[in-house]
């Protein structure tokens, strides 16, 4: 059994959104409950949030954007740049705590204290652009994580697997010209779903050409299509790229019971994806794998999805 870390902190609940908003703190409670009820907590290395040094956020985001976000929170504004991005006074601090918790989890993995981990954080990150908050996201957690690994630990090849049902436009744009980070995303087809990017022909630019890969899935599709596309696209690509570390943008919103998308993955389908990702980590990156929470909004399904997810990381 692997040593698996679990980043969870009640302070992540302090980022409040409007009452009807799907990206709510109950999501993290549901995830925690699933892991607790599955009696996994005693077997996990529990990790608490830590405030990130802002210089790591600046490794990805423009300093003026960071200040704009902080000021909006200080003013007590309840939305930032779009009605999608609901927030409160604490949101800036919580976003820094999310980044800091993730970087501390990475440090623990690099120092050998854990093999892999699941970071149950809010707010999510993969839609956040260098200078723009989008789709409930403020700081691009996974992008900051990749930059941290590169500059602190000299990691040369980071592989990102994004299986949130929405395309991670922010992550793609941050790394599209960078051959040291391979960004793979499987998501609902952009002609139907937010954010309208992630078409099959988007493959990176300049030196980064060939290091971005997108597998759009038409609405109504299920496990079979995911199997087919991952086998056709992701597995051969990572076999060539050989990531030294794998980061996942984990979104549970492609589940059939999640009304945020038209994709119908089953609970079993989700397990299959994660099992393959863990296999790839074992094969290419010495098992080093950090899963970062993005979307997933069905409060009834999140407990079982999170429990299975963590069990697969543990190799139970």
């Amino acid at each position: 059994m692997r040593k698996t870390g679990f980043l969870h902190d009640d302070r992540y609940l302090l980022h409040r959104t409007a009452s009807y908003h799907p990206e709510c703190s109950d999501r993290l409670k549901a995830i925690y409950k699933g892991i607790e009820d599955g009696e996994l907590l005693p077997k996990l290395t529990l990790i608490k949030a830590k405030r990130a040094d802002q210089r790591w956020v600046e490794a990805v985001h423009h300093v003026k954007y960071i200040m704009r976000f902080e000021e909006a929170c200080l003013y007590g504004l309840t939305e930032f740049e779009s009605a999608d991005n609901q927030m409160c006074r604490e949101s800036f601090e919580v976003a820094l705590l999310a980044v800091g918790g993730i970087l501390d989890t990475l440090r623990m993995m690099m120092e050998g204290q854990i093999d892999n981990a699941f970071c149950s954080v809010r707010p999510p990150g993969h839609h956040a652009e260098v200078e723009k908050a989008m789709g409930f996201c403020y700081f691009n957690n996974v992008a900051i994580a990749a930059r941290y690994l590169q500059s602190e630990y000299g990691i040369k090849r980071v592989g990102i697997v994004d299986f949130d049902v929405h395309h991670g436009n922010g992550t793609q744009h941050i790394f599209e010209a960078d051959p040291s980070v391979f960004y793979y995303s499987i998501h609902e087809h952009p002609s139907f779903a937010f954010p309208g990017t992630g078409r099959e022909f988007e493959k990176g630019i300049g030196e980064g050409e060939g290091f971005t890969m997108n597998s759009p899935v038409l609405p109504g599709q299920s496990d079979k299509e995911y199997h087919k596309l991952l086998e056709r696209d992701l597995f051969p690509a990572f076999d060539v790229f050989r990531p030294e570390i794998i980061l996942t943008s984990t979104g549970f919103d492609a589940h059939e019971d999640d009304d945020m998308s038209g994709i119908n993955l089953t609970t079993k389908g989700y397990s299959w994806i994660m099992e393959r990702v863990v296999e790839m980590a074992d094969k290419y990156s010495d098992g080093r794998l950090i899963s970062l929470l993005e979307g997933g909004y069905c409060l009834q399904r999140l407990p079982e999805l999170a429990k299975n997810h963590v069990e697969i990381l543990m190799g139970k």
Partner: peptide, 11 residues
């Protein structure tokens, strides 16, 4: 629609 918050408007 220029939003990601689809579930609410669908309902």
């Amino acid at each position: 629609l220029l939003t990601n918050n689809v579930a609410h408007i669908k309902r």
